[in-house]
Amino acid sequence: MAKYSTNEFKAGLKIMLDADPCAIIENEFIKPGKGQAFNRVKIRNLKTGRVIERTFKSGESVEGADVVDMEMQFLYSDGEFWHFMEPDTFEQYQADENAVSDSVKWLKDQDICTMTLWNDAPLTVTPPNFVELAVAETDPGLKGDTSGGGGKPATLETGAVVRVPLFIQIGELIRVDTRTGEYVSRVKD
């Protein structure tokens, strides 16, 4: 993999840091008029998702990380692995629990999501920002309640639990923001 010098640093660049693949979020060039130049970098560890701040001496080089984002179709889960397919090449990938982590609760068969591959192996799976899922289970709502005063929990077809307004019924399709895990609206056909 290519090496990158600090002056090639920019948001989005993927580099290796402490043996983990990371993505640069923000790069700041710090240089006192009379003194050493540094690059202060905000960086996301792509394995853990943690954001940290690190400093490099300007001119230093770091190893690039072979990390790519691919659109993938979710096929099925066999309990141990989650299977995905690249829709253009039909190439299949199996992701383990670490890679799918929480994302899986938003995915149903055939859904398209983004998979991040590191050295051609699944690193993380990111669901679309918004998904539409059916309500599998929820307490019956009170008649006449149209606003979401307090709301109630609802279990969706994928197993995810979200708070929904009281008027939502079993079987209804709802739109959820996967980044916050919050109910957005009812989906009307």
């Binding site: 710090i30 006192p32 003194g35 050493q36 540094f38 202060r40 400093t55």
Partner: peptide, 11 residues
Amino acid sequence: HSMWLDFIFSH
């Protein structure tokens, strides 16, 4: 020493 000063002062 001088680099330490630059580092700590700027950060």
